[in-house]
Design a protein around this nucleic acid. Structure first.
Length: 610
DNA sequence: TCGATCACGTA
DNA sequence: CACGTACGTGATCGTA
């Protein structure tokens, strides 16, 4: 009855969406014979609101290998069809399968995940991570030379139907491309197994203390009013403090303060510029404070409560096909940028809590994972040895660079070494180091020269990666994840420089992402296999956050640590720092070793003291 | 209404 | 020449 070829079927369905069979819930049993003949189906779900635990399904469609497409219209029929597919153990082929799994977990929290046989969005991303997430229309255009109508112009059922069939139709071309590029294992062994782990995390969500946020809202509001009065008083009139243009005009023309950097459109008024003017005029400090308070209030204190779902928890969406290095990203809300650096910010972090008195939060961080990856990929003997010794890595670095015993390294010297250790992964220049360390460009250049002399393996690696990247047009991680960097061949020197920094950074950041993803999959497996009630909540690049029944904590921690540390054996040990607490701010190390690690591994410093 | 710009939160 | 990577969000402002 149908088509030999899915591309032909898709072409016909684009021309005539009427060939998508619309289904009521009562019509589902009649699909029995057809479904019995399928092992996997193309599938797509369309929500009125894509955020987990927010919207309801408007349509769910499946497509068969024969080109037949059926769609459940409305929530009841969509759910019925989805359950039928799940109940039969059919595997999914979808362009973004995660929301289909989230829909199942929302309805049945303890259900097993539906098997995802292929995700075309992730395949397209693995094949070209340099592009931002690709729509199904992009993939259909590239692989089949067909044009899908814009989703907005379609009824939900027609959209779901076309997407389900499209996913099935582009599956084979994408699978062949993955094979040809040697990306099959990355796709099958990391990215696909990660999907149900992320779906479960999104569905679980994280608890937030609304009362505590309300207290912060009042407090921040009062402080902002006070600062506004102070700012207007110091300037002599009102203006829009949040407008960089107005602020720049007032500071640099009306008040004639010394001008700092310029932006494309006028004077820069960013924190680095304003910091230089503190003490020059009384308006500066209150403006800086006002920025901090209003940023925290508008981004977190006011917004988070509006995003809490009916279960009282926040459900982020993790994006698995966005970041060009292989990292995950998080949005609506972004729970990967919850403040931690400042005391005020930490008060916001403290409103993220364990969901019940019987549970605690457990955070496990990889310690200096990127620098360890640099040690591994560069093969630098001295850096490898420093990690093998489990020494204070920044002190060790300073000692080696400056030819002094570690015991004689001053705080400033250690701080400088730390900045270089962190800057290394970004392709930092003498200019960058000088401006951050508050030293001359020449001093910065000298320190970097000494650094590369002391760690010649790293020096060689940096040259090597740039050369390899130029020759091949792409760079890869340890697991073969690829990013092409066309900027490396740009005529414009600035663009080319940017390309070189991307080439340096991607294998490091991307390998860390590979490791984190392996760890997530294995931790999730162990939680299930060993009967833990603990649940993964968040992944913040090199940290995993879990919600754990109190009585499980002692049993879980060694499992967590060993699973993460063993995710990918390198030439240096990976170490994981574990903390526990009732909120995300007041986390205390669970062993003496963790206390030491936490101490040695704080965020990069921005400037030297004094 | 939307996009560009600036600014700033995280790893 | 610009001057460290990767993200997402909110406010402002000029534009369609």
């Amino acid at each position: 009855m149908r088509f030999d070829d899915l591309a032909t079927a898709l072409g016909a369905t684009i021309s005539d969406p009427g060939r998508i069979e619309l289904l009521e819930a009562e019509g589902v049993p009649a699909l029995a014979d057809w479904l019995a003949g399928q092992t996997s189906v193309g599938a797509s779900i369309v929500f009125d609101d894509p955020r987990p635990r927010r919207g309801t399904a408007q349509a769910f469609a499946i497509a068969g290998a024969d080109g037949r497409v059926v769609a459940g219209m409305g929530e009841t029929a969509a759910d019925a069809l989805r359950r039928e597919v799940e109940g039969r153990g059919l595997q999914l082929v979808a362009h973004e399968a995660k929301p289909i799994l989230v829909a199942r977990f929302a309805a049945e929290p303890d259900a097993a995940a539906t098997k995802v046989e292929f995700d075309t969005q992730i395949a397209a991303y693995i094949l070209n991570a340099a592009l931002r997430s690709q729509s199904i229309a992009d993939v259909v255009a590239e692989r089949l030379d067909l044009v899908l109508p814009p989703p907005k112009e379609l009824e939900p059922v027609h959209r779901a139907g076309l997407e389900a069939l499209s996913a099935l139709a582009v599956r084979d071309p994408l699978a062949r491309a993955l094979q040809e590029e040697g990306l099959e294992r990355l796709f099958r062994e990391i990215e696909l197994p990660l999907i149900p782990v992320l779906a479960r995390m999104e569905s679980t969500g994280i608890a937030v203390d609304l009362d505590a946020l309300a207290v912060l809202d009042r407090e921040f509001g009062a402080e902002i009013s006070r600062l506004e009065d102070e700012i207007y008083g110091a300037v002599g009139h009102q203006f829009t403090i949040g407008s960089p243009k107005q602020l720049g005009d007032i500071l640099f023309e009306e008040l004639r303060l010394p001008k700092g950097r310029r932006t494309k459109t006028g004077y820069s008024t960013d924190a680095a510029v304003l910091e230089e003017l503190v003490g020059v005029h009384p308006v500066i400090q209150p403006v800086l404070d006002w920025r901090i308070y209003t940023k925290l209030r508008s981004t977190y204190v006011e917004t988070l409560p509006s995003l809490i779902a009916e279960d009282g928890r926040l459900h982020t969406t993790f994006h698995q096909a966005v970041a060009s290095t292989g990292r995950l990203s998080s949005s609506d809300p972004n729970l990967q940028n919850i403040p931690i650096r400042t005391p005020l910010g930490r008060r916001i972090r403290s409103t993220f809590v364990a969901g019940s008195p019987e549970t605690v939060l457990v955070a496990a961080d990889y310690s200096q994972i990127e620098l360890r990856i640099i040690a591994h990929v560069s093969g630098d003997e001295h850096l490898k040895e420093a990690f093998a010794k489990q020494a204070d890595i920044h002190r060790e670095t300073a000692a080696r660079v400056l030819h002094k015993p570690p015991g004689e390294i001053t705080a400033d010297e250690r701080s400088m070494a730390k900045m270089v250790n962190f800057g290394l992964a970004y392709g930092m220049s003498d200019f960058g180091l000088s401006s951050r360390a508050g030293i001359s460009r020449q001093e910065a250049q000298e320190f970097i020269n000494s650094y590369f002399a002391a760690y010649s393996g790293i020096s060689y690696y940096m040259l090597h990666i740039k050369e390899t990247a130029r020759r091949q047009g792409h760079v890869t991680t340890l697991l073969g994840r690829k990013r092409s960097i066309p900027e490396l061949h740009a005529a414009n020197a600035a663009l080319r420089g940017a390309g070189e920094r991307m080439a340096i950074n991607m294998p490091i950041q991307g390998t860390a992402a590979d490791i984190q993803k392996i760890a997530m999959i294995r931790v999730a497996d162990r939680l299930a296999a060993d009967g833990f009630g603990a649940r993964l909540l968040l992944s913040v690049h090199d940290e995993l956050l879990l919600e754990v029944p109190r009585e499980e904590v002692d049993r879980l921690i060694p499992v967590l640590r060993e699973t993460m540390e063993g995710a990918l054996p390198l030439d240096v040990p990976l170490t994981v720092d574990v903390k526990a607490g009732t909120d995300w701010e007041s986390m205390t190390p669970v062993s003496r070793r963790d206390a030491i690690l936490a101490e040695a591994d704080e965020a990069p410093v921005d400037a030297l003291a004094g």
